[in-house]
Design a protein around this nucleic acid. Structure first.
Lengths: 105, 105
DNA sequence: TCAGTAGTTCTGGACTTATGAACTATTGAA
DNA sequence: TTCAATAGTTCATAAGTCCAGAACTACTGA
């Protein structure tokens, strides 16, 4: 759980994770080459995904040449009920407040 | 919010915060000279309190020679509904799982 | 004024994190 | 099979953050 909070305490990672949760379909790394109008190098992205994986927040599966990232909501919900939902909500509230005119992501 | 998660991503700080929330009465620094059976130097404690304060999680008031720390639940609940509750719950679940025979703290 | 208690600030070493360069893995085409 | 292209990972290192001892400030009571 310490790992979960640490993973989501980073603005880039929480945006990535919120993106993965929001899209029903799995997202590959390159979906996040820019996050909130900021360019993220691939090596950094790869580290971020690693941290999300190790925190148990996502699972990554190779499909051909790309990796598809899926959120592990159900497992986390079982271990820490309400936690993920509350964080994703808080993130949405915050990014809505930050950039009012444009929708989240 | 990033600050809130970062503050509570540390096992010592989340234990401290949970302690402050659990006790109705304000807690001074020295209440936490040991956290989960681990001795914490005063200077480190002071840093931890500073981080909790700057994240908006607590307020510290001097009363004579000591500082009393109060949680700012209500304000946070208003900004990020459910977040603090979910994290404190998750912490309780986790520390119960870790040391089953003994109660939280 | 002094001693004692409570907490803060400073500082340096240890640990983390971000990123460019070089790498591996997979695919599709020649 | 070889080659080029795409997608991600690993490595090295420079920059940043964190911990804890030493020295400090703030307040109280004698």
């Amino acid at each position: 759980m310490e790992g979960v909070l640490h993973a989501l305490a980073d603005p880039v990672r929480v945006a990535m994770y919120a993106g993965i949760v929001a899209q029903g379909c799995p997202q590959n790394c390159s979906s996040f080459l820019t996050v909130s109008d900021k360019a993220i190098p691939k090596s950094t992205l790869s580290q971020h995904f690693k941290i999300l994986r190790e925190a148990g927040l996502i699972r990554s599966e190779r499909h051909g040449v790309e990796m598809r990232n899926v959120s592990r909501c159900a497992e986390l919900e079982q271990r820490f009920p309400g936690l993920i939902q509350a964080i994703v909500n808080a993130h949405a509230i915050q990014s809505a407040a930050k950039a009012r005119p444009v929708s989240v992501r």
